[in-house]
Nucleic acid binder design. Structure first.
Lengths: 227, 227
DNA sequence: AAACGCTTTTCGGTCCACCGAAAACTCCTC
DNA sequence: GAGGAGTTTTCGGTGGACCGAAAAGCGTTT
């Protein structure tokens, strides 16, 4: 996992990777610009440079995707980000809605040596506090076969494998509801017209039912229970 | 301890502070440039900007020193640097010659929140792995009354309070010799003509004597034994 | 097929950190 | 007190990351 030159480039690769992680559409320039918090012109320039460097593939007026070399570098950044998040929660007592910002900065600052030490100290974790898989140093990625709760039929159940960290507020909301990794959940009833879903949390008599709105449902990924 | 805008500015303030920490001469531009690893023209420009910002004091063709505001910001950077070094050694198993580089980068990346957590986790340490005092959040600095071994008369003894971290090689050398913080040392004999000093390490019958060259002697700071 | 709206690209332009060369200055020596 | 060595400053210039405005291209609609 070689390192790209600059933080801006790392952020760009990381964002393109993230866009393709849970779906496989090429990201558009405007979405990229928005995700990076820069103007479209800046994003366009950055993409041009990374394309010239052989890290991105991009046809004029088309979507952006990673080359194999770009994917490797992106995986490095993502690995750093997620290991740091894991460390912040496990060792420094951060809550899961606080870690993202901090990791966003630190991912550009930690050396390979430090990353190794963190990894060892944490026992080579396979997922970060939100359940996102931590890429391995060799470029492979642990892939639990999780599905978004939004895609599961009524009656389906499983354990929470991932919660999208896109919005810290949502994370705090889930924390309040007691929703966390490995919690058992079941889709009880969909009310499409109302945009909500009734979800049963926990197994057995201790379980509770909550009404989740569509955005919240889409943020929860579940590993279907073996049956 | 407010934060200056950029890493380059932080490094500049930190270096000016470091120059005045163990002596009180103003640093010259050329030394500053050398310490920062930039050309004199770059250093000159940086100093001009920080002077305009009210953080440095500088008369044309004269030395550079911190204003009160500059000192506060410098203390912030130094605090971050030294707490990080302490953390790397205490929690991640770094040896004391490895930490400087890493902290050099991380000091610009850690947030106040993370610094607080580190500080708490480490038990609010007062000195870093080399014995350098860690400035407190309020801007005060713990000041052990240490002297360079080079300034002590023959026969004087005390405990090692600080070892200059200017040169990692020297640190590794000391580690090999078993010289570390709080070790009891005594100046046995000076051989000025030869540029060496005989130093007794440890108290009682278990003590050993070693011959240290001038640079090594100057790097060791001692808290004189109360008598 | 012309026109519209949207996205993408290009085009100046800014700011920061850096450099080397040349000019300005200090200070020491003779 | 005139030179000269060394330091400091100024000056012009580079590359990176950013911006807004304007041009170019795409897809769709009329």
């Amino acid at each position: 996992m070689p390192r790209p030159a600059t933080p801006a480039a790392e952020d760009c690769l990381k964002t393109v990777y993230a866009a393709g992680e849970w779906s496989d559409e090429k990201i558009t320039l405007s979405k990229l610009a928005q995700a990076l918090g820069v103007s479209p012109s800046t994003a366009s320039e950055a993409v041009r440079k990374l394309t010239d460097a052989g890290l991105l593939r991009h046809e004029r007026y088309g979507g952006v995707e990673l080359t194999e070399a770009g994917r490797l570098q992106a995986l490095g950044v993502v690995r750093r980000h997620r290991l740091i998040e894991t460390f912040l929660v496990a060792d420094l007592g951060y809550s899961w809605d606080e870690v993202h910002e901090e990791a966003e900065v630190l991912e550009h600052a930690v050396s390979d040596r430090m990353l190794d030490r963190l990894d060892r100290r944490l026992g080579h974790p396979e997922r970060d506090p939100h359940g996102d898989p931590i890429p391995r140093p060799d470029g492979t990625v642990p892939r639990p076969g999780a599905h978004s709760l939004a895609d599961l039929p009524e009656g389906a159940a499983g354990s929470v494998a991932r919660i999208s960290d896109a919005d810290p507020e949502v994370l705090r909301y889930f924390a309040d509801l007691g929703i966390g990794l490995d919690l058992h959940v079941r889709v009880v009833k969909r009310r499409e017209f109302a945009g909500t879903t009734v979800v049963r949390l926990g197994e057995g008599p201790g379980g509770r039912e909550v009404d989740l709105g569509d955005p919240a449902v889409a943020a929860v990924w579940v590993l279907p229970a073996a049956r």
